[in-house]
Each structure stands twice: as C-alpha cells, then as structure tokens.
C-alpha cells in the first residue's frame, strides 16, 4: 500500500473560523468476474491503540428483500470486531446502500456527530471492503484531526479497493 502525501496551500489561507472538513473518495474497482456483487464497505477512524474513534459510513445491502443484508456484516471482519457488533443497523447517517464500481465521494464537516467528539490527535482512516463470493481488503491512511493545514492523502488497494483519497481542510 502506497501513501502519497501532498500538502496544499489551503491551510495558509483558511481562516480558523471555518469548519474543518474531511473529504473521502473511495474507488470501487470494476472487476471481471463471473458473479459480481457490490462490496460491503466500512469507513472509520481509529486511534493508535486500534480502538474506534468514529464510525463514518457503512455501505451494505440495506434493502435486501429477505431482510438478510445484515447477515453478511460480519464479513467486514475488522469493522465487525472493533465496532460493528456494537452498532444497531440500519443507522441514520451511518449506513446506506452498497455502491457500484467507480469513485464515490463522501464529505464530513467537523460538526458531524462522529467527528465533533474527537480529541485532537493522530488517527488512521480505515476503509474495509468485503465482497460476496469475492475477497476482502483493508486500506489505511494516517491523518491528523483536526488538521492544522490542508492535506491530500491517498492510498491504493490492490484487490477489492482502488484509490482511497482523503482531503482534509482546517
């Protein structure tokens, strides 16, 4: 996993009065497989001790006809162990439907319930993807929250995730 770091100039001009925000772009790769299902994805921030600091998003089969979508949530193994098994789904502002191949952007302002309680410090953004009849992959990006200056960070998955890009603005 490569981590690319590039600091923008935005930090120099942003006034402290503006809310910090966290923008994440997640690429779901298009795979040439006989049986394809859109992956389940969990996105969260963890502390250096691996405990979960903020649950940001969970994409799963919320509208499963037999209401069995949550049966496979445990396949997001790391998320399930660290957070999922304590979360009641569906959960407003957290869970939503799975996404098709392509890049998907999600944005969080520091007023977001999951972020506003965060103590300033070092975190890792974790993106975990698990695909029915397919594989599983975890991509991690270290970041500081709240950010002191603007930064664009990215990492690339090899199997179930494409590029994960994070933009933070103070």
């Amino acid at each position: 996993m490569r981590i690319l770091l590039s600091f923008g100039l935005t930090g120099l001009v942003a006034a402290p009065a503006f809310a910090a925000d966290l923008e994440i772009s997640i690429e779901i790769p298009k795979l040439d497989v006989a049986e394809y299902h859109k992956p389940y994805v969990a996105i969260w921030l963890e502390r250096p001790d691996q405990s979960v600091a903020a649950n940001l998003a969970v994409w799963y089969d919320v509208a499963n006809k037999k209401q069995e979508g949550d049966k496979w949530l445990k396949d997001l193994r790391q998320w399930w162990r660290r957070a999922g098994r304590n979360v009641t789904v569906p959960a407003d502002g957290l869970t939503s439907a799975t996404r098709a191949p392509g890049a998907h952007a999600i944005k969080f302002e520091d007023s977001h319930a999951a972020l506003k309680a965060l103590a300033p410090g070092e975190y890792q953004l974790i993106v975990e993807a698990a695909r029915e009849v397919g594989g599983r992959e975890v991509v991690k990006i270290p970041l500081q929250w709240p950010p002191e200056k603007g930064a664009a960070l990215n990492a690339k998955g090899e199997h179930e995730l494409g590029t994960v890009a994070v933009t933070v603005k103070p």
Partner: peptide, 8 residues
C-alpha cells in the same frame, strides 16, 4: 462462530 444479522 461469529454471526451477524437477526436470528442467525
């Protein structure tokens, strides 16, 4: 040994 969902 690890299950999720309703009434597994």
């Amino acid at each position: 040994t690890v299950l999720s969902g309703k009434d597994p």
